[in-house]
């Protein structure tokens, strides 16, 4: 527990609200960081891969849904810098941006799906959080099957 991270700020906001009335849920903005330009992809996530190869980008229609994914750009260098209500500052009170802590961006019909890589190189998503998948593409396809046509919504964490 050394230097404060954005993640700690996130948890701090949860703490602040844990005992309060949830009058107005705080949501991630519907917009997300702009897709990185092609030149950024090869180096994305370098240094945070824990020895695992970063999966390749994908872009396909699966069961009628547009699923796509690509390695997350390094934090702070997203084109446009649209990271959340606080503009990405360490001390903002709101929740983290949609790609907080993510190594890989996954979208379904242009909505962000929060994903996370496990230490063994497998992946989980917010939709299927308790089972692991070999690749983000497999995770995105599983989410499509789970959603049965429903849209992802900005996630409330406050």
């Amino acid at each position: 527990m050394s230097r404060p991270t954005r993640r700690q700020v996130l948890h701090g906001s949860a703490a602040a609200l844990a005992g309060a009335v949830l009058a107005a849920p705080v949501a991630f903005p519907g917009t997300a960081a702009a897709r990185p330009v092609d030149g950024h992809r090869d180096s994305a996530g370098a240094g945070r891969t824990a020895g695992h190869e970063m999966p390749d980008p994908f872009d396909e229609i699966y069961e009628g849904r547009h699923i796509e994914g690509w390695p997350a750009d390094d934090e702070g260098s997203h084109g446009g810098g649209r990271r959340g209500p606080g503009g990405g500052a360490e001390h903002r009170a709101g929740p983290a941006g949609p790609h907080e802590g993510m190594d890989f961006v996954v979208r379904i019909d242009n909505d962000d799906l929060h994903v996370m890589r496990n230490a063994d190189g497998t992946w989980v998503s917010l939709v299927n959080h308790y089972e692991t998948f070999g690749t983000p593409r497999a995770l995105a396809r599983a989410a499509v099957r789970e959603l049965k046509g429903a849209d992802l919504v900005p996630v409330v964490t406050g």
């Binding site: 991270t5 996130l10 949860a14 929740p95 907080e100 802590g101 929060h114 496990n118 917010l126």
Partner: peptide, 11 residues
């Protein structure tokens, strides 16, 4: 919030 924030390589 904790599901999103808890990561293997981080806090």
């Amino acid at each position: 919030a904790f599901i999103i924030g808890d990561t293997d390589e981080g806090e």
